[in-house]
Design a protein around this nucleic acid. Structure first.
Length: 115
DNA sequence: GCGCTGACTCCCC
DNA sequence: AGGGGAGCCAGCG
C-alpha cells in the first residue's frame, strides 16, 4: 500500500490505504465491484476507488485488476483494459461474448453483500 | 476557491 | 437489457 513513513498521513491518504487493504482481500479468480470496495472502506463514492487504484505502482501487491464495475465489465479502456482482462482470464475468470463477467459466479464478498 | 474530469452507480425510461 | 441523466468526490490547473 502507499503509506507515508510517519504519522503525517492526510485524511485522503488514510482512505486510499483503506481501499488498498480491501482490494488485497479479493482472492485470485474472483472479482469485486468499485462500489463494494467503497462501502467496505467506508466511502460513499465508488469513483474514489478508481482514483485510488490509478495511483498504484505496477510492482505493488494490490490486485487492482480484480476490481470491475457494477455491470460486470472492465472500466479501463485501451491497452490497460486488455491487460486487466488478460490477468483475470489467467486466474480463471470467464468473460461472456459481450465481455461481461458473471458476478453471481465470480463476484467475491466477505459478509458484506457485493452489491 | 472554482470548475472540470473521471478505473462509478443508481434510477428511470 | 441497455442507454441517458443526475449525483458523486478527490485531484489538479
Amino acid at each position: 500500500m502507499i503509506r507515508r513513513p510517519d504519522k503525517g498521513a492526510s485524511p485522503s491518504q488514510v482512505r486510499i490505504d483503506a481501499i488498498h487493504v480491501h482490494v488485497r482481500k479479493i482472492p485470485a479468480g474472483r472479482v469485486a465491484t468499485y462500489g463494494a470496495i467503497a462501502r467496505r472502506a467506508g466511502l460513499r463514492s465508488a469513483r474514489i476507488v478508481g482514483a485510488a487504484l490509478a495511483g498504484v505502482p505496477a510492482e505493488q501487491a494490490v490486485p487492482w485488476h480484480r476490481v470491475i464495475n457494477a455491470s460486470g465489465r472492465i472500466s479501463l479502456t485501451g491497452r490497460a483494459g486488455t491487460l486487466q482482462r488478460k490477468l483475470l482470464e489467467a486466474e480463471g475468470v470467464r468473460f461472456d461474448a459481450r465481455g461481461r463477467i458473471d458476478l453471481d459466479a465470480f463476484g467475491w464478498h466477505d459478509d458484506v453483500p457485493l452489491r
